[in-house]
Amino acid sequence: MLVVENLTKVFKYVTAVDHISFKIDSGKIFGLLGPNGAGKTTTIRTVLNIIKPTSGTITFEGKSITHEFFNIIGYLPEERGLYKKSRVIDVILYFAQLKKMSKKETLNEVMSWLKKLEIENYKFKKIEELSKGNQQKVQFITAVIHNPKLLILDEPFSGFDPINQQLIKELLLDFVNSGKVIMLSTHQMETAEKLCSDILLLNEGKEVCSGNLSQIKKQFGSNNVKLEYQGDGSILNNLPYVLHVDNYSNYAEIQLKDDMQPYEFLRNIVDKIKVKQFTVIEPTLNKIFIDVIKQSIKQS
């Protein structure tokens, strides 16, 4: 478990990170979200122990982060790039050895990773001879080959086509199953929505929203349901616990009063109308992100 408490980093004139706290359990993907310049990179760098925090504590499995943690951390920075003139195998070996893997161990692991990412034919090629997507795959391998307990990924999907995005997603879910602590920083709200169980939304160094994703959604949801039905839809307008109905050709989006639970509503209407499909509409993370950031800008 990674625990960050009251983390603050002040550079000469700016407070890049202002008293933020979060926790990541093993086997969970944590989303660190926020607009550009929100303080995500600074947070990541302090967790990586590249820079020292001004105040606050960071602990991993109960111990505070020191240089001893270098070997159990895997990091994929947002901006990609490797030694262009060097061979794939040499680059992977170098980074693996820096993580204290022996040469023998690395050579055993390399082939299976190259196969997993479908680039086994490029083992002895120079990095510059690879396509951008394949270069990114090599970099992904360098971040995970030493089987890190804490994995920090900054925009892991950027630059990948949908097929490869799927491939990376599956690998991440494998990591979740093997109990790794994963921190994901991204702008892609759809991805964060699918993968992250908890999130922290930052703006100008401050926490604007954090916690369990489904709870956040509930918090920001306005009790809307989507109903696909057969029969006369006009009766929906006249129900006492309905605030508003948007009627489309064969379905309706209904806003319920706050004290009306969706399942309660369903129970009430099944006799009156032939229900084909019923869904509780949750606000998308994207919408929450935009709303929350706008609101925090207004407040400041």
């Binding site: 760098r45 990586l48 122990n49 590249i50 240089h67 270098f70 070997n71 951390i73 990091y75 920075p77 947002e78 901006e79 990609r80 790039g81 490797l82 030694y83 980074f95 820096l98 993580k99 360098t142 971040a143």
Partner: peptide
Amino acid sequence: SNRLIEILVSSCS
């Protein structure tokens, strides 16, 4: 320029 330095300093001091 390609942030390799960040990977390096997150692997050794």
